[in-house]
Amino acid sequence: MERSINHKVFYPHPPEVVWDYLTKAELMEQWLMKNNFELKLGHDFQFTVGPIPSMDFDGIVYCKVLEIEPLKKLTYSWKCGPGNGKITIDSIVYWTLLAKDNGTELLLENSGFKEANFNVVIFNAMEQGWLANMNKIYKILNETKNGSTGA
């Protein structure tokens, strides 16, 4: 099961230009969504679009700026839900900019989905039998240790 989103794009524009489009509210709005972003660590902001009832999404993405490394890195939380402040999706968006070939390679990672995340890990582990295998190994190791007394 895929649990993170990754995209890599190359833009034939310097990182300064791409950075502006990632960090200036009025420029972000032109390609992303309406927002009240500010380039300040810890700043809480929202993106707003129209609600999407089929997704149980009220159209507001709640974010907080988590990391800023000018022209290189920008990280914010990315949470949304059906409304009334209920959050069903709790994830993180990571932007990374790399100057390359007279342009910018932009990496987007949207990951850290917390919802049922732990269950997913367990579920996958069960399906693949890993957990059972690891338990067997653990048992064998223990038995070997205890068995060495000749009992």
Binding site: I89, L108, E115, N117, V120
Partner: peptide, 17 residues
């Protein structure tokens, strides 16, 4: 829970693209 999450991930995957 797993199915729901998968639905959202597909949605945002397309969204970002």
């Amino acid at each position: 829970g797993f199915d729901e999450l998968q639905k959202w991930i597909s949605f945002f995957d397309n969204f970002w693209k």
